[in-house]
Amino acid sequence: MQHDLTLTGHGVRLVPLAPAHAHDLLGFTDATVWRGMSSPTPRDAADMEGVVATALATPGRCAFAVLDDATDRVVGSTSFYDVDLSAGRLEVGHTWYDPAVWGTSVNPACKLLLMTHAFGTWGVARVAYRVDERNHRSIAAVTKLGAVPEGRLRDHRLRPDGSRGASLYFSVLADEWPAVRDRLLARLAGEDVPDDRTHLLLVGGRSGVGKSTVAAAVHDLLTARDVRHAVVEGDALDLAHPAPWEHGVAAANLADVWRRYRALGYRRLVVTNTVSVLEADVLAAAVGDRPHVTSVLLTASDATAHERLARRERGASLVAHVGRSDAAAVRLEAEAGPDVHRVPTDGRSPEDVAAEVLRLAGW
């Protein structure tokens, strides 16, 4: 799509992408820079010329070269795409930058210019961002903008190696734009901007250790202090027969649940599950915004765990639960890394354990 838009401000200039930019773009593009794209990493001049040609030939896409406004040096590329002004929506993406400008003002400046034009000049109702679920750097950048996570589209992306992967969607709506704009302006002015990422507290442990009871006590303590939070019983996220473990239903359900809480302003999430502390990466990805994670493994002696299980189970069910609990205890102790906090529960009240868990989380 040919266009004549030039957007300038805050040290950058976005100009229509042209074949002449291919050489400079190739100079800093490698597999790390290109991570998360759906096409192979351009390796030579012909490859990059093809990338530029594809961008220009794609309907509904306005592609830009990003220039340092002081030096005219090409430092990246970004695009409006899937532009549908009749429906008042578009996406921002196909973005990559010279690593030399990572962590600088370049990305927030570009996003400010693009969204100012989209909302202010074109009058759109929605600007969306689509990110490969494995691209944690991009997820963190989009989250830092203040974009709202909307969900996970399964097998939505075809990766360069032929595998399929999920896309995470984020968006900014017109009535959210003023707050996002102010946040970007504050960052560009060098002001401290509050970290808006999720704080995820994972509570794991063998059956009979008291995960649910401690989580309830955590909930009570936070409620008494009027701290906004949500508690999710992880075991209920895929409680079905046959259990669909191989399909990742629990993580997908967590993503859906948390998306709704986060849209309402929640930022603290407690998740309980026997092996949650072993699956921190999966659960953090499901949350979708590179969360701060605290992993707590509750522990108990065999005698304590067995006695607690006997209060709720009988006969063959008790025998089965005890066997699974003992096996889980061995596995958790062997596999939980040094970053996992061990908190004993023997002879302690749920309130006492919950208070320690909250201290570890810094809540």
Rank of each mutant, 00 (worst) to 15 (best):
W34P: 10
P19G: 12
G11Q: 00
L14H: 15
P19C: 03
L7M: 07
L56N: 04
Q2I: 07
D44P: 12
P16S: 10
V15E: 07
A55G: 00
T41F: 04
T8Y: 00
V33N: 13
S39T: 10
A53I: 09
P40T: 01
A46T: 15
T32V: 15
P19L: 13
P42V: 14
L56W: 06
L5R: 03
F64Y: 12
L5Q: 07
F64D: 08
C62R: 02
L17P: 07
L17H: 09
P19S: 12
P19I: 12
A46W: 11
P40M: 13
L17A: 05
G60H: 10
R35E: 14
M48G: 10
G27T: 13
L5P: 00
D4K: 05
V52P: 06
A65T: 00
L56K: 03
A31C: 12
V15W: 12
R13Q: 15
G36E: 04
H21M: 15
D30K: 12
T54W: 08
A57E: 12
D68A: 14
T41Y: 10
Q2A: 12
R43G: 10
S39C: 05
M48Q: 11
L56I: 11
A65R: 05
V51H: 06
R43E: 02
A45P: 03
V12T: 15
R13A: 15
T58Y: 02
L26M: 10
D30G: 04
A20L: 14
C62Y: 02
F64S: 02
L17V: 05
V52N: 02
M48R: 02
V51I: 03
P42M: 13
W34S: 04
G50A: 09
